[in-house]
């Protein structure tokens, strides 16, 4: 049994109006515990609608979601329970900050879980440490923080609920390359420490290829599903879904077409560099 099972999930917006739109269409997906899953797809492919079903925020038009084999829509209590077990960080989460202090804002989720004061305190400190917010920021207003710090405070607010699955929608959008790298490392560190599952929604192929499994969506359906090397090997199909290959895979493809003898599975800059250097060792192409 998988941790999360999506069964025939369908969601139709504005049913019965001229704006009717099927955002996800009879979708089946199993997500194993401990996986890092990348959800990629063009704008409007249904990624964001999909993740809003994982914690029962949206009710499906048809189908359902099982968490540990239990229907998350079964009762009101089950729906509420799902919110805490599947933590969702939406796009630009910094716009949700509202409390007077950073500490109080991170404590909002655990407080809604009705935990004891000590437990809340422990969780807030741990979550802040995970995202790299120092404790002397606790008494500041979240609005005084820098953009990157706000983002981290907002993510800490979800981590503090200690979810088993962490879902992030474009967590690195609008961050500079260093901030992006830093945030990703912290998220992966959280996963290793807590043994949780991460679902990353992204456009960024350099982030996608760091996931163990990639699911490619197009108009509400899954078109590709597998480890990154398999997904990126289907480059034609990816392009058909309006997605690009990672730059390194694209360059490798061009070199291959130009007659350079490169191995098939290249999708990171490091792999590309290594492959090119090994060619030189063989005395193949003159560099």
């Amino acid at each position: 049994m998988s941790l999360l099972e999506l069964r025939g999930l369908t969601h139709v917006y504005s049913r019965g109006t001229p704006f009717e739109k099927t955002a996800i269409d009879h979708l089946d997906l199993d997500i194993e515990a401990g996986q890092t899953l990348g959800l990629i797809g063009h704008t409007g492919s249904g990624k964001s609608t999909l993740i809003s079903h994982l914690n029962a925020l949206l009710k499906p038009t048809e189908g359902t979601v099982l968490f540990n084999g239990e229907d998350i829509y079964a009762t009101k209590a089950a729906m509420r329970h799902a919110r805490f077990r599947v933590g969702v960080v939406f796009q630009y989460p910094e716009y949700q900050l509202f409390e007077e202090t950073v500490y109080a804002d991170i404590a909002y989720g655990p407080k809604n879980q009705r935990l004891s004061q000590q437990e809340i305190d422990r969780r807030v400190r741990e979550a802040a440490a995970f995202v790299g917010l120092s404790e002397d920021q606790f008494d500041r207003s979240p609005l005084e923080l820098s953009g990157g710090q706000k983002r981290r405070a907002a993510i800490a607010g979800v981590l503090a609920m200690e979810p088993e699955v962490l879902v992030l929608d474009e967590p690195t959008a609008g961050l500079d390359p260093a901030g992006r790298e830093d945030l990703l490392e912290k998220l992966f560190a959280w996963k290793d420490a807590s043994g949780g599952t991460i679902i990353l929604v992204t456009h960024d192929m350099s982030i996608a290829n760091r996931c163990q499994r990639l699911v490619v969506m197009e108009s509400g359906r899954i078109v590709l599903d597998g480890p990154p090397e398999l997904v990126f090997a289907a480059s034609e199909q990816l392009r058909g879904s309006g997605l690009d290959l990672p730059a390194a895979a694209h360059i490798a493809g061009l070199l291959r077409r130009a007659g350079v003898d490169l191995p098939a599975a290249i999708y990171t800059v490091d792999q590309l560099a290594e492959a090119i250097l090994s060619l030189r060792g063989k005395g193949g192409a003159p560099c």
């Binding site: 509420r80 919110r83 805490f84 939406f90 716009y95 949700q96 809604n112 879980q113 979800v158 609920m161």
Partner: peptide, 16 residues
């Protein structure tokens, strides 16, 4: 739209 988004975000943190 913004209200919808913030509502989702706070509900995701267990707002009732």
């Amino acid at each position: 739209e913004e209200t919808d988004r913030i509502m989702s975000a706070q509900k995701a943190r267990g707002a009732d």
